[in-house]
């Protein structure tokens, strides 16, 4: 039982490592494959943007509301904006965007590649002398690395905007105090740290989608399982890596 579990774990790690190598070793071909990458960036970005915007507005609003509710008795109003900005830049922005895109994009990559696997389209690519690592894996991982920081910046801006709306309209803290709070004690590392996180999350989302898609077998059921596994594993890896990046950067 334990030996089987260890074998299965090692096989999983080995499989992920192989897909990782397949993608990364083709990174130097990115300029020549810019059309494939661009099409992935657009597809990932456009499909995720509406849900990222929606979630970000409400996440920003609830963050501001909670900040006021928890601290109004003993913390000056100035610190509401500061609290919202720090929470958003360090943690909420990259983490929420990562989790949303993991659900939206990792599943779609796994479903697309899984269908290609079970319908022999990936075999057909191989026989045409086209390396699936370059044609399928590299553009998706590369696009994840590029699009996640962009979506994170958009999400962070909207979260702070959402926080500002609640603070000004509902809690009666003036706009100037909120904005002064956002600028108070701003540390650039917090912004960069969040963006470094988003780069790694984007990489993990692309990697997990590709790995589970390539491993799909059987048919519709196999593709469904691959999709679920891609979402779960990318979310788990995002949460685990978030801790280690936080320790390393901050």
């Amino acid at each position: 039982m334990i030996i089987t579990a260890i074998k299965s774990f090692l096989s999983y790690v080995g499989g992920v490592f192989i897909i990782l190598i397949e993608g990364v070793k083709n990174f130097h071909r990115a300029p020549k494959s810019y059309k494939l990458i661009l099409s992935q960036i657009l597809s990932m970005g456009i499909s995720s943007l509406p849900i990222v915007i929606l979630v970000s507005v409400f996440a920003g609003m609830v963050t501001a509301y909670q900040a006021v509710f928890q601290t109004k008795a003993y913390v000056p109003e100035l610190y509401v904006g500061m609290g919202v900005a720090k929470a958003v830049l360090i943690e909420l922005g990259p983490m929420l965007t990562g989790l949303i895109v993991a659900g939206r994009v990792s599943s779609s990559i796994a479903a697309e590649l899984g269908t290609m696997r079970v319908t022999e389209q990936i075999d057909a690519l191989e026989i045409m002398g086209i390396d699936p690592g370059r044609y399928l894996v590299m553009p998706r991982i590369f696009a994840g690395i590029i699009i996640l920081p962009v979506l994170t910046i958009i999400a962070e801006s909207i979260m702070i905007f959402g926080g500002m709306l609640v603070t000004v309209l509902d809690i009666d803290i003036s706009l100037s105090i909120f904005l002064r709070g956002v600028r108070t004690n701003f540390v650039a590392l917090e912004l960069w740290g969040g963006l470094i996180k988003s780069v790694i999350f984007g990489f993990l989302i692309g990697l997990m989608g590709c790995y589970h898609g390539f491993r799909a077998k059987g048919g519709a059921e196999g593709v469904g399982q691959a999709t679920t596994r891609a979402v779960v594993s990318s979310m788990v890896l995002i949460l685990i890596s978030d801790y280690f990046i936080a320790k390393w950067v901050f």
């Binding site: 697309e112 319908t119 022999e120 389209q121 075999d123 057909a124 690519l125 026989i127 002398g129």
Partner: peptide, 20 residues
């Protein structure tokens, strides 16, 4: 291997055309 495969064409049972 990819060079050798350029000499080979294969027709799959399910056709395996790229949907997209």
């Amino acid at each position: 291997l990819y060079e050798i495969r350029k000499k080979i064409g294969m027709v799959f049972q399910s056709s395996a055309l790229f949907d997209s």
